[in-house]
Write a protein that binds this DNA or RNA. Structure first.
Ligand SMILES: [Mn+2]
Ligand SMILES: [Mn+2]
Ligand SMILES: [Zn+2]
Ligand SMILES: [Zn+2]
Lengths: 146, 146
DNA sequence: AATGCAATTGCAAATCGTTTGCAACTGAGG
DNA sequence: CCTCAGTTGCAAACGATTTGCAATTGCATT
């Protein structure tokens, strides 16, 4: 849920430790990701980066996203329809509800569902490596129902 | 689960009722889908169709898949990595477990998970239109099951 | 601070899956 | 059979992402 109480992860330190160079484009992209509360796609990250450094290319955004994803620093989501969207991997695990009308992405978490998934996989003789749970819906009309 | 006890749906009748023409390419593709137990992608369907009618084009496969999807006759899945895969919509709702090593797709269903999803959406003020639950995992080594 | 070189970049071109414009063709009601 | 809107194959266009390559840059080393 992007708890604001969360310690902002020091990506630069982590990158250095991984023997990766801290370049100007990477620093800019890292800053953008750290300051982001939503789930931007590559083009959005590119545009935000461009306002800071005109010379950054879209290719570099993609390459950096792949690098960070490989390091486990970010998660890539492929919601239906649009391009891949990203978010920092720093928070706790959660799944997403997409508002079909507005495109809003709402985060949620259910321990019960997570447990059931494990149980199902186990029964089938499998061990889950990762999963994807996306709910697509629309706001309930506030029609005097209850 | 593609229950074999299921009545094979008469797509041709359904199509006619929808004012859609039964053409040779469509008949071929429909037959392939009806005879399919797995989740083929457009290229696979195209290749299977080609062995029956050399003149069918990949475009027509795509167009037909879109038509059938719009009619609710098939479901389109975008599992991570590969191209979209399809399956008849005739069976009961189910979700998928993808074997990361073999690519096998295993179907499962959990009423409990479905209920929890509804509950979560409701609490957030939403009504689910559809959802996507995919488990990616690998066979458990130690204890043999199945 | 100057040097050396592999890592990284921007750019353009390539790739992949899918869609689309268009002229030729065909299903099905008359 | 006629007719003609629906459908097709083909090629070209598409959007998202990746990649080859020559130029640039971070940074370990003097
Ligand atoms: Mn999220
Ligand atoms: Mn299935
Ligand atoms: Zn989850
Ligand atoms: Zn489900």
């Amino acid at each position: 849920m992007n708890h604001s109480a969360q310690t902002k992860p020091d990506y630069e330190r982590e990158l250095r430790r991984a023997g990766v160079r801290i370049t100007r484009p990477r620093r800019v992209i890292l800053d953008i990701l750290a300051a982001t509360e939503d789930h931007p796609d590559a083009m959005e990250i590119f545009q935000r980066a461009s306002t800071i450094d005109k010379s950054i290319s879209l290719s570099t955004v993609y390459r950096t996203m792949k690098l960070l994803e490989g390091m486990g620093a970010i998660h890539r989501h492929a919601f239906e329809g649009g391009p891949a969207r990203f978010e920092q991997a720093s928070g706790d695990h959660h799944d997403h509800l997409i508002d079909l009308d507005t495109g809003d992405v709402i985060e949620f978490h259910s321990n019960r569902i997570e447990e059931l998934q494990d149980e199902i996989a186990r029964e089938l003789g499998y061990e889950i490596v990762h999963h994807r749970l996306e709910l697509y819906g629309r706001r309930r009309k506030a029609s005097a129902r209850k």
